[in-house]
Write a protein that binds this DNA or RNA. Structure first.
Lengths: 137, 137
DNA sequence: TTACTAATTTGTAACGGTTACAAATTAATA
DNA sequence: TATTAATTTGTAACCGTTACAAATTAGTAA
């Protein structure tokens, strides 16, 4: 059981209710949500919640390294809890994003053609397991 | 010398002046431009050009496989001429996008954890060669 | 507690990339 | 040349996001 209040403090972020709840959500639901999805999900629990707070908080968390921002979709940013390095698979049909645990040793080097690599994002796209079954039936 | 008129016909796209010029630009300048950049660049040559035409044309080309749409930046889509598979490096400082010719054999397989992979995008981020030199000086 | 200050949250308006849509223009055909 | 279809254009709207100021909350000192 993670103490999110402590986790925020460790990252130099004063733990308000909104911040704790947003962090908790990102940690518990691995759905790579957009800012709006987080907002919708927490509206019931925090009726006064503002969308701006969600955007600001997600931005802060990302800057502090607690979350990672993904650019898998063309138009909207998605967030996930920063854990082990992994790659993403997006289904063209259902739109779901899957985490692929496989890592690539060949990307471990931190220098390529003279450039210093700080991040790498691998995004696969295609038809997911579920949609393949549906199409085959 | 590529005959862009013929190339369009081969992809089932009637070759209008606008379409030819846009394709020509994407082929000649490997700058991974946004729709707006293409628009700005062609405004002199085609004074009546509309931004909507650029957007529509880029979309059509992408659907037909002539171009590839990149989601390296968070907010805007960038396009490039569809050639050999390669990966992209985006510099945090100058924002430029570099093509890295290195390919990864480990991503050649078309099936991963049950999902059918149709596309893969590898985006590296960090400090580019040029900016490293500037920072070191 | 109370008064005061700083931090946080909120709501509205605005911004920027993109798209919808109808009118205007151009090309194609008879 | 007249008619029809395709393409382009311009405007307005959409949507994700951000700027900003007001309102609220939390923290501190008397």
């Amino acid at each position: 059981m993670i103490n999110f209040k402590e986790l925020l403090k460790e990252h130099g972020i004063p733990p308000s209710l909104q911040r704790i709840k947003i962090l908790e959500y990102l940690h518990n639901f691995k759905t790579h949500p957009t800012a709006d999805m987080v907002y919708q999900a927490l509206m019931d629990e925090i009726p006064t919640l503002s969308k701006t707070t969600v955007y600001n908080t997600l931005k802060t968390f990302t800057e502090k390294g607690i979350l990672v921002a993904l650019s898998i979709f063309e138009n909207e940013v998605r967030y996930e809890y920063n854990t082990e390095p992994h790659i993403h698979f997006k289904c063209f049909k259902c739109g779901r994003i899957y985490d692929i645990s496989k890592t690539f040793e060949c990307l471990k080097n931190e220098e390529i053609e003279g450039h210093k690599v700080l991040e790498h994002h691998i995004n696969l796209k295609g038809i997911c397991k579920n949609c393949l079954v549906k199409a085959g039936a």
